[in-house]
């Protein structure tokens, strides 16, 4: 599962970002002066696209973990550390 998470991030870098880049690049038409609004807001939306993608992956993982590994889940089983009582506390 963690491999999948990494895979999604790599995909985000390789596929999503260049395509977003491409779309934004087409919006820029040659003008006498550069338009700081366009440049700065485009950067902002690009960063937000990535931030929300990564955010969806992170919070999705978090929500799934919280749902799957809750002790009331039908498939919940004692962790291997519970028998030996070795998961923290004074050693």
């Amino acid at each position: 599962m963690r491999n999948l998470l990494g895979l999604f991030l790599v995909l985000a870098i390789l596929v999503v970002i260049p395509s977003v880049d491409h779309v934004f690049a087409q919006a820029d038409e040659p003008a006498k002066y550069i338009d700081r609004r366009v440049l700065i807001w485009n950067l902002f939306f690009k960063l937000m696209t990535v931030a929300f993608t990564v955010g969806a992956v992170v919070s999705g993982t978090l929500i799934w973990i919280v749902w799957r590994f809750r002790e009331t889940h039908p498939q919940a089983k004692p962790t291997e550390y519970e028998k030996s009582d070795t998961w923290g506390g004074p050693a």
Binding site: R2, L5, G6, L9, V10, I13, I17, I34, R36, L39, I40, N42, L43, K46, L47, V50, V54
Partner: peptide, 26 residues
Amino acid sequence: LYVGVIIALMVWVGAEAWNVERLVEH
């Protein structure tokens, strides 16, 4: 792998920001 992805993302963010700042400051 995860740390590598974060570093790659941060390099990308830094490069993009640097480029826009360069254009805007001229």
